[in-house]
């Protein structure tokens, strides 16, 4: 399982979902590709020049003809990377530049050493720049929500930087197409009793990423949808 040229990171696939990130996506992917040769960017039906910017980086481009949502974009990226029989480690990485490539390098290094299937980045074990107090409080509430609904206890439940092994990628099968994917990811972990650990990451919110981010009120929609999913699935 651990065979292969680890130092080249040839067995790592970085999945970058992208929706209207034209101004930054090229720089973000170029920085990732300095460390990881295999990058698949999923253009989720962007209306700007994202696809052209991605193509210019040399990363693999998968284009949704229509906008499907973040969860669908992640799943497309995972499905695509699974087509590579040598792919062993999968990374989800945001296209808006809030994540640091150095964190990915450290996380990939860690998952090769320890025997866990999933490594979840945590802003609260690491550091966050530019996050408002209200946002922080909301995320705290979300952590409690996830602890109650999925039974998985994390310090940061809705964080897009995650590293996982092929075995978990094969069972992931995200059906939640929107921001619920982060919750469904955890549900899948609890269903399969996946081994996991958290890892401190450093997230930098810029004016750009803030302007692109979720409105806080949308967490109400996401929360209710997650509960409905639980009820329907529970039958």
């Amino acid at each position: 399982m651990n065979s292969g040229p680890t130092h080249l990171n040839d067995d790592v696939w970085v999945i970058v979902p992208c929706y209207n990130e034209g101004p930054v996506v090229r720089g973000v992917i170029q920085r990732v590709r300095e460390h990881f040769p295999n990058v698949v960017a999923v253009d989720d039906g962007s209306r700007d020049n994202s696809a052209a910017e991605i193509a210019a980086t040399g990363a693999r481009l998968v284009q949704h003809p229509v906008n499907l949502g973040a969860g669908a974009a992640y799943q497309t990226g995972v499905d695509f990377a699974l087509r590579d029989p040598d792919a062993q480690i999968f990374v989800t990485f945001d296209a808006d530049g809030q994540h640091q490539v150095e964190d990915v390098v450290a996380m990939v290094h860690r998952i090769r050493e320890v025997d866990v299937e999933v490594l979840i980045g945590s802003r609260f074990l690491g550091s966050v720049d530019g996050m408002s107090t209200s946002r922080r409080a909301l995320l705290r509430a979300a952590i409690t929500f996830e602890r109650v609904t999925s039974g998985i206890s994390l310090t940061d439940a809705h964080q897009g930087l995650r590293v996982f092994r092929r075995s978990f990628a094969q069972i992931l099968d995200l059906t939640a197409h929107d921001m619920r994917w982060a919750s469904e990811f955890l549900t899948r972990m609890s269903e399969h009793q996946t081994t996991f650990a958290e890892f401190p990451v450093h997230v930098r919110y810029t004016d750009y990423s803030r302007s692109k981010g979720q409105r806080s009120i949308n967490s109400v929609n996401i929360g209710i949808d997650v509960l409905i999913d639980k009820v329907l699935r529970g039958r």
Partner: peptide, 27 residues
């Protein structure tokens, strides 16, 4: 839509991770 997108990407640039060979046609 997702499987269509993947098939299209495979058709355009070939299967993923084929030993880092550059794409057959440059963008």
């Amino acid at each position: 839509v997702r499987s269509l997108a993947i098939e299209e990407a495979l058709r355009r640039d070939g299967p993923p991770g084929a030993r880092r060979s550059p794409p057959t046609r440059d963008p």
